[in-house]
């Protein structure tokens, strides 16, 4: 069997990544900040697990989380 199936599968994954990145780029500013804080938490936990000093994720009040808001705000 040749590499074509693997190449095709990889191309599918890359295309999905591109679509995912485009979708993330279209989020609202507030939603992007929410994703950023998730990224900070993930990165900090990985850094801490490696024994290095991790930076603190933003300590934003949950009431600022746009997902907690009524629809139509922010």
């Amino acid at each position: 069997m040749g590499l074509e199936p693997a190449i095709s599968a990889a191309q599918g994954v890359f295309a999905a990544k591109t679509r995912r990145r485009a979708a993330l780029a279209c989020l609202s500013f507030e939603e992007k900040v929410r994703v950023l804080i998730q990224l900070q938490r993930i990165a900090s936990s990985v850094v801490a697990a490696s024994g290095r000093v991790a930076r603190t994720p933003w300590q934003i009040d949950n009431s600022e989380n746009p997902s907690d808001r009524a629809p139509g705000r922010g």
Binding site: K32, L36, L39
Partner: peptide
């Protein structure tokens, strides 16, 4: 990076 975030996908920054 927060300005970058405004225009594009979220990237890690502190």
């Amino acid at each position: 990076a927060v300005a970058v975030l405004f225009y594009a996908e979220p990237v890690l920054t502190y």
